[in-house]
Simulated scan of single mutants.
Amino acid sequence: MSKPMTVARYAKEHRGWFYGCLLLFALVAFFCLKAIYDMTVYGAKAPLYAFTAGMVGFGATALGSLPGFYFHKLSDKAEDWMLGSSAGMMLAAAIFSLLLPSIDASEKLFTSELAATLWVLFGVFLGVVFLLIINASMRIRPMKVPRSKLRAASGFLFLPSSFITFPKA
């Protein structure tokens, strides 16, 4: 039986992933400290608004993840409801925050709205093809982890969720 995965063991076995996450954390910390400096020294308002919006997003994400720490078994109906609402929010975010502004921006390149929309849809299609090529070329296989062995304290929170699958009971 293998030892449970801890954060320290995962960091030793996957140094590139660990140092990449550490670098990203350092960059985020640097920009947060710079924003705080700009707010206190220069009285800048934009970093305050960005920092406040970021903290609201962080709080909402943290609040949304709390049930995962306490409910280890969910009914299929509850899981479907949660996945469906998440998919709906992401779909709305993609349409209202990504696709519509990109169509507005591409209207400056083309004279008609139809051509701008087709250009954006072509870009989306290329992105899907690119992701399918990446998926087909990856040689990573999911780990089989029994639900009884999966605990938040064992460090699995730092594994990408796509690498963890659960065998059928």
Rank of each mutant, 00 (worst) to 15 (best):
L114R: 15
S137N: 12
I134T: 03
A11H: 03
E113D: 11
P47K: 10
V120I: 11
F125Y: 15
L121D: 09
W119P: 00
L63H: 15
K149F: 01
F51D: 09
P47I: 01
A152M: 13
L74F: 08
I36Q: 05
A136S: 12
V128H: 12
E13I: 06
T111C: 01
L99A: 15
S65C: 07
S148C: 03
F96L: 14
L132D: 11
R147G: 00
F156C: 00
S148E: 14
A136L: 08
V124W: 13
I103D: 01
L91A: 12
I133A: 10
F130N: 07
L100N: 00
W81F: 15
T40I: 03
T165C: 08
S75N: 03
G57R: 02
M1E: 03
G43L: 11
Y19W: 15
L66D: 01
T61R: 09
L118I: 11
P47Y: 11
A92W: 02
Y49P: 00
K77M: 10
V120K: 00
S102E: 13
A53I: 10
S112V: 02
F71L: 11
V128N: 04
R139L: 14
L99S: 12
A11S: 04
F125G: 14
F30K: 08
F30P: 01
L98T: 10
A8E: 14
L109F: 09
T165P: 01
A78T: 15
G16T: 13
I134A: 05
A46N: 12
F156I: 00
R151K: 06
S85G: 02
K108S: 07
A29T: 08
S148W: 04
T61W: 13
P67F: 01
P47C: 04
L33E: 03
A50R: 02
L157Y: 06
I133R: 07
S97V: 11
S162T: 04
P101E: 00
Y19T: 10
K149G: 01
L118T: 09
M82E: 07
F69R: 06
V41N: 07
T117R: 05
M82C: 10
Y19M: 10
A105M: 13
I95P: 00
A169H: 11
A105T: 07
A60T: 14
K144E: 04
L74T: 03
F18V: 02
A60C: 14
A8M: 09
S2Q: 13
S97Q: 11
G88F: 07
S148K: 13
L24M: 14
K3D: 14
I103L: 10
M89N: 09
G20D: 03
A116Q: 02
A105I: 07
K34T: 04
S137W: 05
V56L: 15
R139Q: 15
I133Y: 07
G123W: 13
L114D: 05
I133H: 05
A153P: 00
P101W: 00
F69S: 04
L66C: 12
C21G: 06
L118E: 14
L99P: 00
F51T: 12
V145C: 00
F156Y: 15
A93E: 06
S148N: 10
K45W: 15
I36M: 10
A26R: 12
L100S: 00
L27E: 14
L24I: 08
Y70T: 02
Y49A: 08
L66P: 01
K149S: 04
V128M: 13
F96N: 06
F96V: 07
L63R: 15
D38K: 05
P142F: 06
L114V: 12
P47E: 06
F69N: 02
A94I: 03
